[in-house]
Design a protein around this nucleic acid. Structure first.
Lengths: 235, 235
DNA sequence: CGGGGCCTTGAACGTCGTCAAGCGATGTGG
DNA sequence: CCACATCGCTTGACGACGTTCAAGGCCCCG
């Protein structure tokens, strides 16, 4: 059951057993990538989609001035580029953060799934729309929240997303990013991200160390981050 | 042909005549809204999608601190909330900017369309993914570009989107926003947006006055904005 | 043992936000 | 028909949040 984590993360709409089977059978093969390896390059014709089975993946763009903006951080159970099915190519990079294992769905198989079942169509489409909802929340964070709040917000979001696929251990979870990654995701410099992380730690809210997060005070962190989970559509 | 502008904006994949007809017949009715009226409220159950026929629409979120972040600006031919079909409710506001006319597609009709044609499914899905690609580019702008460049980038984007649906007159087009709206879209304050607009004007790149934009130097503006249109997927 | 990431901290600077005031246009009610 | 309020635009002065530049430490790896 390669699709187990995906279905655990996306429970609406509910699939019939034969729809689950069809989804499972749409997988052509699995592949592994080493840490920091590129998975998809911008503007190259694509013929398959990538479901993340294990490890962490990022999507990002670089600006001509040499700044990198991370657009999304993906956890196991996420389709990292399902949008390549309707778009046919992507305008951003997709790269492994850690060593990863992925399952590949040929576009032709995705198309076949949409023909077979309107419910399956809805589920796949929905998962790309939740991705977009996360993008929107990041716009709000980067555009309207001060640095420390942005970081706190990321820790809240990643906690819920990882917890949902069974990758949180109480209030602790692995988030194998560098402070540079975190800065590139939140529109900050690494220096300032570092200072804000210290502040969050000293406030007793959350600690980020060596790629892992420990939440000391979940209600306090949520309050500080102005975190409202409705954008994750967990229902 | 209510769907004319939508099909003009989205030419890939190409529909067969009967698919165009099916799309057209999925419209239940048209409705008008006065300027600045709310069209969709967050977290309310939705049963239809809204295609913008005429006028401008914004999507936004408010933070507890009272800052408003605009997430998207929609022009005629845009489906402003097609994502409500798979999501069933939205986590943000949708509101008219100007007086608008919209066409309503019941979710049941959208579902029927996805059953009828995989190509239609792909087209509708694709339009929501282009929306998401625009969200991503806004993340880059807000996260990694200085104020003046952000504004210049918006003017480039809106020019191409409006030009595609025949709403640009040479290098001039209507963009009926206030400076406050522009600031809320770019993560700036109105005061600073005002100063940067003056700078762009004095640099001879672009002028924004009374809800309309005139581009004086398109190549220069594109260069200044680091504008790469591939995220609009115009093919 | 040397080199390169990554993290950490300090100091100085600058972009952008805040506060404040004034202007013109619009609209509403006395 | 005028008085007054409201809204958007504009500009100045000041302050702050975040960046830049710089240096040093730690750790891993070749």
């Amino acid at each position: 059951m390669m699709t187990r984590l995906f279905l655990q993360a996306h429970r609406t709409p509910t699939l019939a057993p034969e729809e689950v089977a069809a989804l499972e059978q749409a997988i052509a093969r699995t592949v592994e990538f080493a840490a920091r390896r590129t998975i998809v390059r911008p503007n190259e014709p694509l013929s398959q989609c990538t479901l993340l089975l294990d490890g962490f993946v990022q999507r990002y763009k670089d600006t001509p001035e040499g700044r990198r903006q991370i657009l999304a951080i993906h956890v196991p159970g996420d389709f990292v580029d399902l949008h390549s099915y309707p778009l046919r190519q992507l305008e951003h990079h997709v790269a492994a953060i850690t060593p990863v294992q992925v399952a590949l769905f040929p576009h032709s198989a995705v198309r076949a799934l949409t023909k077979e079942s309107a419910t399956l169509t809805e589920l796949l489409w929905r998962s790309t729309m939740i991705d977009a909802a996360i993008n929107r929340e990041w716009i709000v964070s980067i555009g309207a929240r001060p640095a420390a709040v942005r970081l706190a917000h990321v820790f809240c979001e990643m906690y819920l997303r990882l917890e949902r696929v069974g990758l949180a251990d109480g209030t602790r979870y692995a988030l194998p990013l560098t402070q540079i990654d975190l800065a590139d995701a939140t529109g900050l410099t690494a220096v300032h991200a570092n200072r804000m992380l210290r502040q969050l730690r000293e406030q007793g809210l959350v600690e980020f160390r060596q790629g892992s997060v420990e939440i000391f005070d979940w209600p306090g962190l949520k309050r500080f981050a102005e975190f409202d989970a409705s954008y994750l559509y967990l229902d």
